[in-house]
Design a binder for these strands. Structure first.
Lengths: 193, 193
DNA sequence: CTAATTGTTTGCATAGTGCAACTATATGCA
DNA sequence: TGCATATAGTTGCACTATGCAAACAATTAG
């Protein structure tokens, strides 16, 4: 590999501006926590997608949807949205895809017929089981890098980070650092350090 | 909110297949580590995107590219690819976007004129600084949910998970659980528990 | 009965992605 | 020198994904 440049910002040639502006340290993407989490998760998700994508022909949204309805058979589209962090359009299209491929079906035989009530078919369960096994193996592969004590620690830390991230999302980029009302679905966690 | 269904899989009505197939436990998306990491990271990234997107008019790839060249002024497109986990097309288009918006420039005055040598302009540094500050605040917001000891622990754990995920990516979904040769750019880490 | 509300779908415009083909530069070698 | 080959980067094109408005269907309120 041929390294072209490895200058520090301060060594930038004069017509390129320097950070300056009262900014003590440059942000480094590689050490920014959300980016680190992103890298790990997308690598694994990409590998899983490389399995189910070609084999079953559905999208990431469809896989997420499938995984959600596997745990909540008969869920409505709205419930899937909430559980999976997907918007209603994605869910609608994902369900459509799964139904067309024969992995899911809609049964609207309830009192309120606005709701969809989606569940997996035989082949849907088969596909889910197979993808799950790969997912579990990847997870085991990933977590084999850390001890079980660390994993337990990580579990607690992630629960709180998840909670904090929900707060950040709710407040938006303007948001001051204020506690936010409990979000539904997230495990209760104290922000106390 | 009107809850329609909350059945457990085992209570599924009879024409819907049950997991069965020698599968001891259903995979739960919410507890699958890569998904948990994904949720946290995308929430924060979405919020940051909601800041720089409308304000500066560039994409996520462009922001990543900007952050990378801020730390490596004069980097070539190829270096940006490697550092940011982006493919060459994304980088090419991201750089184009940044140049068109006046945030970066290409200077190919080196010995090897195939390389691009990209750096931020004055306004590029200004934008980067401003976005960085928001990013740092979000990070601080996020990490305020855990103690500094836990954060240090997390740092080490993530370093190893990052390493493991690189191995998973390299091996693909077929990959057995074998150690993989050192990847460039990742901090050295032992897989020992 | 009508209006408002809720759950879901769909069409359309836009944005992002992957791939092949292309330009330009550099290198190896006869 | 001349020509094949390799490398860096760009661009066109097809395809996929996403966001939004609008439509549609079922329910509830007045």
């Amino acid at each position: 590999m041929q390294t072209i440049s490895n200058q520090k910002p301060s060594a930038t040639k004069s017509d390129s501006a320097t950070p300056g502006s009262g900014n003590s340290e440059l942000l480094q993407l590689e050490t920014w926590l959300p980016y680190r989490l992103f890298r790990i998760s997308t690598r694994v998700a990409d590998v899983l997608n490389a399995f189910y994508g070609p084999k079953y022909g559905f999208s990431r949204s469809a896989w997420r949807t499938m995984a959600i309805i596997a745990n909540r058979p008969g869920a409505s589209a709205k419930e899937i949205c909430q559980a999976g962090g997907l918007d209603q359009f994605s869910v609608s299209r994902a369900v459509k895809q799964l139904v067309e491929l024969g992995f899911a079906r809609r049964t609207s035989g309830r009192s309120d017929r606005r709701y969809a009530a989606i569940e997996l078919s035989e082949s849907g369960w088969a596909a889910f089981t197979e993808i799950s096994n790969v997912a579990k193996r990847l997870d085991a592969d990933l977590t084999s890098a850390v001890s079980s004590e660390e994993l337990a620690l990580l579990d607690g830390i992630l629960a709180r980070l998840d909670n904090a991230s929900a707060g950040i999302l709710a407040r938006g980029w303007r948001g001051a650092t204020e506690p936010v009302a409990d979000e539904p679905g997230a495990p209760a966690a104290k922000r106390d350090a």
